[in-house]
Design a protein around this nucleic acid. Structure first.
Lengths: 181, 181
DNA sequence: GGGATAAGTCAATATGACTGACGTAATGAC
DNA sequence: GTCATTACGTCAGTCATATTGACTTATCCC
């Protein structure tokens, strides 16, 4: 087994962790735990609303990204969510069967099934986004002025470097809401 | 793509809330999505390491909070994780059976089973914390000076108000590492 | 003694994920 | 026109994490 402990506590060379987080290279327990607690409560808002539709977190994610990116291809969605197409299968089917999402053949490539939200889907996506935005807004109100910008920078920097281009394209501030089908 | 992320939106001066929502009350899609992507990658570090032990994310959470809070009672752990004792059951059993956690009868109340990590459990908890700290440190390095403090403030403000006391007690910056059994 | 509390357990179920294999249709290169 | 590749879907089986509900045991405290 790789001896992580000696590597971590060895005083000879200071890792980036040690530099950023204290003289003794102590773990950043506060941020680790804050991320856990903040995310735990953040997703719970939407979870509760989704239960009324018989949907779960997975449905929300699909609906959200289709709402934000009309005409999204299935492959692109899989790449965003980092799940397999089998995992997506059931969730997408339910959203389509219940009229929240529709598929259209690609104009240039007829193998593609482009995804769009319906009016109903857009309404639900927007409702959930507003719930989450309420929590975010209240959080930012209680903080200093630049905290929103700093939070964006920090969260963006937490993303895998090789994913940042894709994330920047998707999560760009002020990007307009997409249209419906 | 730093320019994308450094850009704080509002040209007009509004309240923090209005800025978060945008000029037209639009959802805070950027922060919603950044939270998703940041958390997705954040937990993946530990997930990969845990796979080698046959453990999952649930084991990590239990191990982490027991490591950080030696002598934790089962009820307290359930309250932190917000899961049922049935859900905790299997995970805790496996951690105990494989020698990562031990239980001790409470001294004053013999109904209690106080939880402690073993040396082995402490080593694994620390290894996982270091993995996550590495990502956090690298993220903070790429940001401005006050971003760490701002991120803490933002994440803390994202927690349910009625949970904040409990979270503050657990995730206080600079809180010392707990001891083993 | 008796009610409340701490913890554990059995059973059934839901959700979200996985791997692997296979099928179908369309594209695009040769 | 054939053929490999791509996009998508699906069948089958499995695993991890979570749920509700019911019940037990031991202990505490009034």
């Amino acid at each position: 087994m790789t001896d992580v402990m000696t590597e971590a506590s060895g005083a000879t060379q200071r890792s980036s962790a040690a530099r950023a987080l204290g003289p003794d290279g102590a773990p950043a327990y506060d941020l680790i735990e804050l991320l856990f607690f903040a995310y735990r409560d953040f997703v719970r808002d939407a979870d509760e609303a989704l239960a009324a539709y018989g949907f779960g977190r997975a449905h929300h994610r699909v609906l959200h990204f289709v709402d934000r990116n009309p005409g999204l291809r299935v492959t692109e969605l899989l790449d965003i969510l980092k799940i397999t197409k089998q995992s997506l299968g059931r969730v997408l089917r339910e959203l389509i069967d219940q009229g929240f999402i529709i598929q259209r053949e690609g104009a240039s490539d007829r193998r593609q099934r482009l995804l769009f939200v319906t009016e109903r889907g857009d309404a639900l996506a927007l409702k959930l986004a507003h719930l989450q935005t309420e929590r975010i807004s209240r959080a930012l109100e209680g903080c200093g002025d630049d905290v929103g910008a700093a939070a964006r920078r920090f969260l963006f920097a937490m993303v895998d470097p090789e994913e940042r281009d894709a994330v920047a394209r998707l999560a760009m501030p002020g990007r307009p809401r997409g249209g419906r089908a």
